[in-house]
């Protein structure tokens, strides 16, 4: 007999998904665990407003497909959910392009943080923004997926491989290729900023 989902903090994702076949409402616990992560990822790629819609959509799709969740490929649902979210991104390439174009514009309006939050890192990133975003636009969609899953999702090679359904070696080569291109686009400024 399983405990009610809300009280069982240590139930693994795989157990949760499995038990949701019998008790569908239990799936909401996965939502609580990962909604913010998925929203953060989608907002970075498509903007916050689109993410507001698609983050929840990710979980609805996951719920409908929960029978396909394969614990043998890893007991964490995180890569699986990122995979679904990435698939949604691929269905919104125009929103993505629009966002990249807007962020890449020289003099584009960007977040005006209060001075107390205006970290050195933020200022440094701002200087790189137009070139970096332009270079990101030039990446293949599959390369951008890997870059964002790593940079915003914090996923490792294995998790990205699982999310995208590709071999980990491919993740590695895509990421290396993408990073090399981004670095080339930035010239030697990443190093300069490191010293700043």
């Amino acid at each position: 007999m399983t405990a009610p989902p809300e009280t069982d903090e240590v139930t693994s994702d795989a157990e949760l998904v499995a038990s949701s076949m019998r008790e569908p409402e239990g799936f909401a616990l996965l939502y609580d665990r990962y909604f913010d992560d998925i929203h953060r990822y989608l907002a970075a790629r498509l903007g916050r407003e689109t993410a507001d819609d698609l983050a929840a959509e990710t979980f609805l799709i996951a719920f409908r497909r929960r029978a396909d969740f394969d614990p043998a490929r890893g007991t964490a649902a995180r890569p699986w959910l990122y995979g679904i979210a990435t698939n949604l991104v691929s269905q919104h390439r125009r929103s993505e392009q629009r966002r990249l174009k807007a962020l890449g514009r020289v003099g584009a309006e960007v977040s005006v943080d209060g001075h107390e939050e205006r970290s050195t890192a933020r200022v440094a990133a701002e200087m790189l923004r137009p070139d970096l975003v332009r270079a990101l636009r030039g990446l293949a969609p599959g390369e951008r997926d890997v870059v964002f899953l790593s940079a915003l999702g914090g996923l490792g090679y294995e998790d990205i491989a699982q999310a995208l359904g590709i071999p980990a070696g491919t993740v590695g080569s895509r990421l290396n290729r993408a990073k090399a291109r981004l670095r080339r686009a930035l010239g030697d400024r990443t190093a300069q900023n490191e010293e700043a």
Binding site: A121, A151, T190
Partner: peptide, 9 residues
């Protein structure tokens, strides 16, 4: 570049 992407996006 990965840190910068995170900061920007």
């Amino acid at each position: 570049e990965m840190k910068a992407i995170e900061q920007i996006f």
